[in-house]
Design a protein around this nucleic acid. Structure first.
Lengths: 167, 167
DNA sequence: TATCGTATGTTATAGCATAACGTGTCAAGC
DNA sequence: GCTTGACACGTTATGCTATAACATACGATA
């Protein structure tokens, strides 16, 4: 089976779910994508992605580094930053600038410029497709003659669970 | 005269213009806004805003700090971070996370969640209104039950001038 | 097998941000 | 007037984030 029967749901990050299943699917797809592109998903890089997938949340580079070191890889910052940079470049992970952190892409392979919803209470991060947002940005850019290469779209607020707790 | 006859133009950051005029207008409006709200635009805070307005670009906190110190204020990081935090909270400045930097808001007072266009070559930052973007984000948030408090919307690419030079 | 490109490891340092505490100032209430 | 509390600012110290620069290893290719 391929991973194509996964059903990415943006709200997943905020809900209980069969995580082993969703993580496995994403990892499998990541392999396919890398192979297809000729990008080398080496052991460190693969492990870094697994680490992100396991925790299913945004992680700081140093936190990832610690886990990589436990797995027998180098324990200096560049080891983690390089692996993470590769994943981001390949669209297998995203950088959440507001948190100075990284999260696995839950829907790799498809062109997307996702938006992130970050819960300020529990730090959960949901990734949602944002085609409308992208379109609006391209429009604004065109009006001022700007050519867009990358976007970061992040919202901070309360996830459903924390909103309920707070009330 | 009030500053209300200013004509904010998102593309301004990428063009030559009467900067003393545009900066002066923004500063005047900032004073009005602070006064109206009971927020205290103290000397350090005011100077920090002036510094951001003078350079008309995104500046790191330490760069602002240096300028503040030259003006006789403290020379330790918290001095700059506190002033900048105040400005951001009051909507008088924005934090550009991609650059770990701050920029004066060129259109303060009006509720807005602006988008930023950052030139990767010359580091110029243009602020554009992004109502459509905000609407799209609110829509996506509603679908997953997320309540948004703040947004960061940033695009990296080439400004018109640098795009021309590059070609 | 010599060479080149790519990946990884390592050292060192640069750059960004905040916790915690002390001092001064001003206004409200006694 | 004096006290009290809120707020702003200064300072010390430290922690976290990120990258430059160099060394080593390995596979592909000529």
């Amino acid at each position: 089976m391929t991973a194509s029967d996964e059903t990415p749901d943006p709200a997943l990050a905020f809900e209980a779910h069969d995580h082993a299943h969703c993580a496995g699917g994403v990892l499998a797809r990541a392999e396919e994508i890398s192979a297809a592109r000729g990008a080398r998903l080496t052991p460190v890089r693969r492990r870094a992605l697994e680490i992100l997938l396991e925790s299913h949340r945004a992680m700081g580079a140093y936190e990832v580094l610690e886990r990589l070191a436990e797995a027998g890889f180098g324990n200096q910052p560049p080891v983690a930053y390089r692996a993470l940079e590769f994943l981001v470049d390949q669209g297998l992970a995203h950088r959440i600038r507001r948190l100075n952190a990284f999260a696995a892409c839950m829907n790799p392979g498809e062109a997307h410029s996702p938006a992130f919803f970050i819960c300020k209470t529990c730090d959960a991060v949901a990734e949602a497709p944002a085609e409308a947002v992208r379109a609006a940005m391209e429009g604004a850019a065109a009006r001022i003659g700007f050519s867009v290469e990358r976007m970061n779209i992040e919202a901070l607020g309360l996830c459903p669970a924390c909103a309920e707790t707070a009330s």
